[in-house]
């Protein structure tokens, strides 16, 4: 993919993934070619089992491909070694999970700080960024609470802050609102879209949720491990 322009954050080329379920091959992804550009706010939708999670895991380097190639930020990640990939993820991808997945023994503030610690960001700067981020996601005053002392919506806000504070190239979110009530989900989505507009950070998320689809700028629909439709909106 030599025509890789600087604006393309993710490029996949004929990506396939075959799982083996008790010796029976399961074709979860059957050849996806996609390009996601900088600043997009994109939703991947499709029925359950259509391969959304699998595809997100592949473009984030959490899972390997059976066939095909994946470039992230111009780097071919589908052939990276485990530790290289680990550092690459740390510096380039922010994750938001359906189940929040904060580190249970760390406070909100420490959770947000964690990746910057791995990156070796100096203390002063870490603190500065954490304070700013807490404000941005509306969690001022809750910095010292551990996850179990926060509501689901608040935990997901911490997760968003954690994903963004390390300044990755892209934020990937697998069903970020599925565990939240629709009002809270909508609030968070609006917040993410606002952050997307303000910072230009790229967001890609999978969802079942109509409310999420409505707010997406690009809607990629998967079916049976293939792209069924890909439309830009407003």
């Amino acid at each position: 993919m030599e025509e890789n322009s600087n604006n393309d954050i993710i490029v996949t080329e004929n990506v396939k993934k075959v799982y083996s379920e008790n010796g029976v091959p399961v074709h979860a992804v059957k050849g996806i070619d996609l390009t996601i550009s900088s600043g997009e706010f994109t939703a991947i939708v499709g029925p359950s089992g259509s391969g959304k999670t699998t595809f997100l895991n592949i473009i984030s380097g959490l899972d390997d491909v059976t066939e095909g190639k994946v470039w992230l930020n111009g780097k071919l990640i589908s052939s990276m070694k485990s530790r290289e990939l680990s550092d690459f993820r740390r510096d380039n991808i922010g994750f938001i999970f359906q189940a929040y997945n904060l580190i249970p023994v760390l406070t909100a503030e420490e959770n947000i700080e964690y990746i910057m610690l791995l990156q070796g960001v100096p203390k002063e700067e870490r603190h500065e960024r954490v304070v700013k981020m807490l404000e941005e996601v509306g969690l001022k005053g809750m910095e010292n609470r551990i996850p179990t002392k926060l509501s689901g919506g608040q935990q997901q806000r911490v997760a968003i802050a954690r994903a963004m504070v390390s300044r990755p190239t892209i934020i990937l979110a697998d069903e970020p609102t599925a565990n939240l009530d629709s009002k809270t989900g909508a609030e968070l989505l609006d917040m993410m879209r606002h952050l997307n507009e303000r910072t230009g950070m790229t967001f890609v998320f999978s969802t079942h949720d109509n409310m999420v689809m409505e707010r997406a700028r690009r809607l990629i629909t998967l079916k049976d491990g293939q792209v069924e439709s890909d439309e830009m909106r407003n």
């Binding site: 984030s60 959490l62 485990s82 530790r83 680990s86 550092d87 993820r89 740390r90 510096d91 994750f95 999970f97 997945n101 580190i103 249970p104 964690y114 990746i115 791995l118 954690r162």
Partner: peptide, 16 residues
């Protein structure tokens, strides 16, 4: 296992 999975997903090295 899940916690270690998250730690690794966000970029914690295996040795850490």
């Amino acid at each position: 296992t899940r916690e270690y999975g998250v730690l690794k997903a966000v970029g914690t090295r295996p040795f850490q």
